[in-house]
Design a binder for these strands. Structure first.
Lengths: 75, 75
DNA sequence: TCATCTTGTCAAGCATATTTTACATTTAAT
DNA sequence: ATTAAATGTAAAATATGCTTGACAAGATGA
């Protein structure tokens, strides 16, 4: 199965949203600061539910916060 | 934290896609038939990655396959 | 200097997604 | 009447998401 990569614009969107801190975003999405940091830094992917919540905070559709692309170079 | 509900159009989309079976969709998304059945029937939510893969098979953006709404009636 | 805020990160544990195996029911075809 | 395909479902095991608690480092301001 082809692997895939999911990118996110969280760091950019936080700063576009008036320097919102990780802590503030964490509070508004109902997770911990550590969870958000890990997701921002690509340690793991959020659940679908959390991804929707994050997008909702920014007032954007999920697909404008998280991007999907097939990783053709791996098998 | 307000709970939320995530709905999906998988069952509808499978049949719109020429009666695609759960098995075929499972094969094309790299998961088992049981995982797909569970997601279709709302037993649990897919991972973000799997949600993207499913949408990709149907050639639709994720947000047209999965819908998010806050569940205002729970606390 | 000292205190505070923000972020990075780690380890241990809990929660949830997914797999595997298996069995049952329904529908359609032979 | 039987076979096969599609689906529902369930238990046990593994993988991953998320929490909690903690410590460190850089930036900022008193």
């Amino acid at each position: 199965m082809a692997k895939c990569v999911i990118g996110n614009e969280i760091r950019k969107l936080r700063f576009l949203a008036g320097e919102m801190t990780q802590q503030q975003l964490a509070d508004r999405t109902g997770v911990t600061r550590q969870t958000l940091a890990a997701i921002e830094n690509g340690k793991y992917y959020p659940s679908l539910e959390l991804a929707f919540r994050i997008a909702h905070v920014f007032g954007l559709p999920l697909t404008e916060v998280f991007s999907f692309r097939l990783d053709e170079d791996s098998k």
